[in-house]
Simulated assay, not measured.
Amino acid sequence: MYTAIDYSNVPTEKYSQLTKQLDALLSGEPNRYANLSNASALLNQFFDRINWVGFYLMDGNDELVLGPFQGLPACIRIPLGRGVCGTAAAEGKTILVPDVNQFPGHIACDAASRSEIVVPLVKDGEVLGVLDIDSPELNRFNEDDQKGLEEVVKILIKHL
Rank of each mutant, 00 (worst) to 15 (best):
D124K: 13
L64C: 10
T19S: 15
P68H: 01
Y2T: 06
Q45E: 13
Y33H: 06
A90Y: 06
I78R: 08
T87D: 00
E126P: 01
D48S: 13
I157E: 06
A108P: 00
V127I: 08
M58Q: 13
V127D: 09
T3Q: 07
T87Y: 00
K20S: 12
Q17K: 09
K123V: 04
N51G: 10
V153N: 03
D6V: 12
A88F: 08
K147L: 11
R82A: 08
I78E: 15
D132Q: 05
L18Q: 05
Y33N: 12
D132C: 10
G125F: 07
T87H: 00
D23M: 12
A112K: 14
I155W: 02
K154E: 13
F46Y: 15
E150K: 06
T94A: 14
N142C: 15
L43M: 07
N101W: 01
K93S: 08
L42K: 06
T12A: 10
N35S: 05
S40A: 15
M58F: 07
Q102R: 13
L26Q: 13
Y15I: 11
A41R: 03
A111H: 01
S16P: 00
N139F: 01
V53M: 07
V84W: 03
P73R: 00
L18H: 04
C109L: 00
F69M: 14
T12H: 02
A88K: 14
N35K: 00
L18P: 02
A111M: 04
L42H: 12
D132G: 01
K93E: 05
T94N: 13
D99Q: 13
D23V: 09
G60P: 06
D6W: 04
K154I: 10
M1A: 02
G67Y: 12
D59Y: 07
P98N: 15
V84R: 07
E116Y: 12
N38V: 02
G105Q: 00
T19E: 04
L26N: 15
R77W: 06
G81L: 12
N139K: 03
F47V: 05
T12N: 01
S8F: 05
P136Q: 07
